[in-house]
Amino acid sequence: METNNNIDRLLAMLEHPERYSEQEIMDTVNHDDETREFYRSLTQAARARRSQRSLSQPVDMEKAWEQFEQTHLATQKHGRLWLRVAATVLGVLMMSGIAWATVYTVRHFTATDKSKQTTENVATPPLTESDAVGPRIGVADTSATENEAPVVFDNTSLEQMLDEIAAYYGMTVEFQNEDARNLRFHFVWNKGDGLEKVLEDMSHFESVTIEQTDNRLIVQ
């Protein structure tokens, strides 16, 4: 009975969230397991109906592509960009299982194509001279200074990578998913980036989720 009252309170809050503090909302949602579960079901219900609506709504592909072209392609210098996309796609086709990014490939293009670099740097992430010559493999240099070249982890285990990164930001690492320790990825770490940005970039890794709580990084 008390749970039902709490759920009714939650529904009433949905009508006028602005009348309640964030704390009140969270306390109500997390009042007990049943309410928390109920809220989760509401979330699913809302998604289910948005999904249904979406399917009945036509997708205007021409307009979407046109918009993309105008926003992202009109001002770019085409040659190199297309080369990068081609390299990326080629990389995807060639990859099997093990995570292996295309940055390395693309940077090789960069290195061999150095003479054009000055004019074609438009959308390239900041690369330094040493980076263009060839990525450093594996372990990060701990004698780093703030503005040095990005650290390139090349086919490096998640465990090794996270140990380095966590240590730099004063965090500890906890693997809830033991198997994830040995997953290998390619990742470019800019030490100047905040931890949040780094985690956001890492969130694109498939099959692992990294959560931050206080001073711990939890791998799920």
């Binding site: 995807v92 990014a101 295309t102 940055v103 990825f185 470019v188 694109h204």
Partner: peptide, 8 residues
């Protein structure tokens, strides 16, 4: 190319 391609 800011995404890391990590699968087949």
């Amino acid at each position: 190319n800011r995404y890391q391609m990590t699968g087949s």
